[in-house]
């Protein structure tokens, strides 16, 4: 069950807010201090990618981010509503379950005009030790997670 769910309109200014919220919850969940910069950057990349996709395809639709602390891991899922047909096809060409390598492969298959968008996915793949990318005609979902210690703060 999600600890925190956040929706925000597709404005670049809100990406910073999403980063701050994710980092604060990661810290509370018990993610090691050394990993917090990676969480902050990966969540920022995922949200930036989503904002740019929404601004092209559906600027009025919100972007959703879920932050969970189940099973000793801190898990972040960023879901957008912009069609990602190219990514979906690229994903189908990959064998096996989604992995960090698949994320990089997906990025390399993006058209040139979305270079930095795909670059963001490649960066996420390098930052989180568990990344899954789910492209579909209805939008893209990026799920990433990091280990969290049981010593994390619990809600008062």
């Amino acid at each position: 069950m999600a600890t925190v769910e956040l929706t925000f309109s597709a404005l670049p200014a809100h990406v910073r807010t999403a980063r701050l919220v994710a980092t604060a919850i990661a810290r509370r969940t018990g993610v090691a201090e050394a990993l917090l910069d990676e969480v902050r950057l990966a969540v920022g990349e995922a949200c930036s990618r989503a904002v740019e996709a929404h601004r092209v395809h559906c600027p009025g639709e919100p972007i959703r981010i879920e932050l969970c602390d189940d099973s000793g891991r801190f898990e972040v899922t960023v879901t957008d509503s912009a069609p990602s047909d190219d990514l979906e096809q690229a994903y189908k060409d990959e064998e096996g379950p989604p992995t960090a390598v698949n994320g990089t492969a997906l990025a390399s298959l993006l058209p040139a005009d979305t270079l930095m968008s795909g670059f963001g996915i490649a960066v996420i793949a390098a930052l989180a030790d568990d990344v899954e990318v789910y492209p579909s005609a209805k939008g893209l979902r990026i799920r990433m997670s990091w280990p969290a210690h049981a010593t994390g703060l619990t809600p008062a």
Binding site: R19, R40, G44, E45, L115, G120
Partner: peptide, 9 residues
């Protein structure tokens, strides 16, 4: 304080 792929671009 912070740099992402947009900044790299």
């Amino acid at each position: 304080d912070f740099l992402d792929s947009t900044g790299l671009g």
